[in-house]
């Protein structure tokens, strides 16, 4: 299947090792400006939104998208996941998924 099966969970720190790949990133929306947003996911990440993105400033958002060479992310799917999200937990989990690749990340 040409489609990439897994979309690794990352934080801002992992961006440069995932250029060109599709990833999952969860962060708090800090800025919404037209078709661009910035989120805080253990560091600032710029998201290039698609047309059906409905994000809210201050809420957490889960973005699945492709990492551009300039380390922005072109969103394929965005989802507002509310305000009560533990961001420290999110980055700890992202870290964890890279420690235990055998159960989280498929190589392809």
């Amino acid at each position: 299947m040409a489609e990439q099966m897994s979309t690794p969970r990352i934080t801002a720190a992992y961006l440069d090792s995932f250029v060109g790949r599709t990833v999952t990133i969860v962060g708090k929306v800090t800025q919404l400006r037209g078709d661009q947003a910035t989120i805080d996911a253990d560091g600032v990440v710029t998201i290039l939104l698609n047309r059906d993105s409905h994000l809210a400033n201050g809420n957490a958002a889960q973005i699945i998208g492709k990492v551009n060479p300039d380390l922005s992310i072109k969103a394929l799917s965005t989802r507002d996941v509310g305000s009560g999200v533990d961001m420290a937990l999110c980055s700890a989990v992202a870290e964890l998924t890279h420690r235990h690749k055998d159960i989280f990340v498929s190589e392809n």
């Binding site: 957490a60 509310g82 009560g84 999200v85 533990d86 964890l96 998924t97």
Partner: peptide
């Protein structure tokens, strides 16, 4: 609650 997603990944690990 989105935290359940993270919780589940922790539990699975």
């Amino acid at each position: 609650d989105f935290n359940e997603v993270n919780y589940h990944l922790l539990e699975a690990t």
